[in-house]
Design a protein around this nucleic acid. Structure first.
Length: 594
DNA sequence: GCCGTTTTCGGCCCGACTGTTTTCAGTCG
């Protein structure tokens, strides 16, 4: 049983407890535990098999540990099965509708027998809701709209798409003046692979004008809320955007609060309480405990920070936590003990080992790609077009790749500031063999191996197939190890732990493919590579000159996986890379000889 | 249900917006 499945059961239990309007702190415990389990890079199964005490995990006490054990052994919770009988499955779906929380959902179910969105629609059409206390004319109209919005709701947006939608809106806001500072916070700033909405933070002394301008953006199709300092709109694309406007002196505290994650915020504020501090989006205040200020800005107490985000961490005696780490995965403890990793940065990257040219499905010539890499300041790059099995991408026959090799050799005479490697993204066939004969592969500088077909194998078959390919002496990098396409294709079944261990033994690097819809490996996989100690390569897989810049999305996910540059092969200088390419061969020769 | 630099009980992050309940509950982030 995978961590994500355990988390799913805990979350479902929390959903149903919520509908029973249970103690909200009890519900939060289950959610917190679910989130913790989901963020764990080590499989729970492994901890249990090693006889580890689960209560050492944050947010897990005796009772939660028992629940997790029960889920692990039986696949479910008895208590959950009981609740499922009591509450129909479609009821929890109701809560996904804007404005419907646990209380109103419960009310609808108990008083009108509404237990699905369909029921709700019918009840609305029949005018039944009018009789309910708390449901006025406006509420009912908004509920109608909310159902429509829910039914048309898009999937989560790729980080890159969100960027492209947000940028013009930020420009629109900026053009109106009255803005001292503006930034996008939320999961966008934490660089999550997808975002559900956009959170914009503005420092301004004239919030009315900024809020006006926000609502007047030409892409707005609905205004959900527009208060004095806070507003929410829906864009034509379906993307929801929240705006928060605060004075400059609160900007840092607000940025911290609005960046999240929620769990990270709660942890920080709890820590604040321990220090006798109140932390909110307006600042950090020294406040006598138990005093509830009527006005957060005039809290009885002394303002001791908030203009800059660093204030929050400094005052709590924590090292600064980069946004990418703020997911309650141990970053606060690490910050307290000065053990945060020194995260890899984009300008640590010295080369790119995976890109395509016009020879297959790329848009640019080899020379154009190499020149662009040169412009990026790289010391080396590899052209890795597809091998013959990938017909749809125009994979190269053996003859064609030899011709390409010739072109590359000629090009080398013209190029002096960057090393050009002749490579190939060679297909791993169903039986684990490679798509070209060995004598051809031997002539290439670098071979990137990848699965592109027959993805519906069993987990053990796929794992065997990939591990066999890793053992081939020519292979240097395993590309997009799970094959997933975000919002489009699930990862194929594969035992990544086994793949990582094999890669480590054979001296192969595993790729973090930086295409915005791949990001494969993902952040949690990256964390696992750290634990296992296998090297990774962050590659753009660019199909055009412009896509070389996708590298930054790979860096984002590497940072989210706590990655430091020492473990990333393409941060090495050219001489080191030259050695790395040879090393692998020597290592295999030794293994063969022993 | 969890947890402890006020420790084994009694707290649990904190505030904005909306609609309708004339003083606040519900929802959201």
């Amino acid at each position: 049983m995978e961590n994500i499945e355990i988390a799913r059961v805990l979350n479902e239990y929390a959903d149903l407890l919520e509908l029973k309007v249970e103690n909200r702190f009890r519900i939060r415990s289950y959610r917190k535990a679910a989130q913790m389990v989901q963020g764990l890079s080590t499989p729970i199964a492994q901890l249990i098999e090693q006889g580890k005490d689960l209560t050492v995990l944050p947010g897990v006490g005796d009772s939660m540990a028992e629940h997790i054990m029960e889920i692990f052994t039986s696949g479910t919770l008895k208590a959950l099965d009981g609740l499922r009988k009591e509450i129909p499955a479609a009821v929890s779906e109701l809560m996904e509708i804007e404005r419907l929380g646990p209380k109103r959902t419960k009310q609808l179910q108990e008083q009108l027998g509404i237990s699905s969105i369909k029921d709700l629609q019918q009840a609305l059409d029949a005018g039944k809701l009018v009789r309910l206390p708390g449901f006025g004319k406006k509420s009912i109209e908004k509920l109608r709209q909310a159902i429509q919005t829910f039914q048309k709701r898009p999937k989560r947006f790729l980080l890159r798409d969100a960027e492209q939608l947000a940028r013009p809106l930020i420009e629109h806001l900026g053009a109106g003046g009255d803005i001292e500072k503006v930034e996008i916070a939320g999961s966008y700033r934490r660089r999550m692979e997808t975002v559900g909405d956009i959170d914009i933070l503005v420092a301004s002394e004239n919030p009315e004008s900024v809020m006006q301008r926000f609502q007047s953006y030409s892409e707005v199709v609905r205004v959900l809320a527009a208060g004095a300092t806070r507003g929410t709109i829906i864009l034509r694309s379906g993307l929801q955007v929240d705006l928060r406007i605060l004075p400059r002196r609160s900007y840092g505290a607000a940025l911290n609060y609005f960046t999240g994650s929620k769990a990270h915020n709660i942890a920080l504020r709890s820590l604040g309480v321990e220090h006798g501090l109140r932390i909110n989006e307006y600042g950090i205040f020294r406040v006598p405990r138990g005093v509830k200020p009527a006005d957060p800005e005039k809290a009885e107490g002394e303002r001791i920070g908030g203009a800059d985000e660093q204030d929050v961490y400094r005052i709590l005696k924590l090292d600064y936590v980069p946004p990418e780490l703020r997911d309650a995965r141990g970053e606060i403890q690490a910050a307290r003990e000065h053990k945060l990793p020194e995260l890899i940065k984009l300008n640590d990257i010295r080369g790119d080992f995976h890109m395509h040219s016009k020879w297959t499905d790329g848009n640019n010539t080899i020379e154009e790609m190499v020149r662009a890499c040169e412009q990026l300041g790289y010391q080396y790059c590899a052209i890795t077009d597809h091998s013959q099995a990938v017909h749809v991408a125009g994979g190269l026959s053996a003859k064609e790749i030899m011709a390409q090799l010739e072109e590359i050799n000629k090009l080398r005479a013209k190029i002096h500031n960057i090393r050009l490697l002749a490579g190939c993204e060679v297909d791993i066939l169903a039986d684990g063999s490679l798509d070209y004969p060995d004598d051809l592969l031997d002539q290439l500088d670098i071979v990137v191996a990848a699965v592109h077909s027959k993805m519906a194998m069993t987990k053990s078959q796929m794992t065997k197939r990939v591990v066999k390919a890793l053992a081939h002496p020519a292979v240097k990098i395993l590309a997009h190890p799970t094959g997933r396409l975000i919002n489009d294709r699930e990862p194929y079944a594969i035992d990544l732990d086994e793949v990582f261990r094999a890669a480590k033994v054979f001296g192969v690097a595993v790729e973090l493919n930086a295409q915005p819809d791949r990001l494969d490996l993902n952040d949690k996989h990256v964390q696992r590579t750290r634990e296992i100690g296998v090297k990774i390569a962050i590659n753009s897989d660019a199909h055009s000159v412009g896509q070389l810049r996708f590298m930054s999305y790979g860096i984002d996910q590497a940072r989210r996986g706590w990655m430091e540059k020492q473990q990333v092969v393409n941060t090495m200088t050219w001489p080191q890379i030259g050695k790395w390419l040879k090393q692998r061969r020597q290592r295999l020769d030794t293994m063969a000889g022993s």
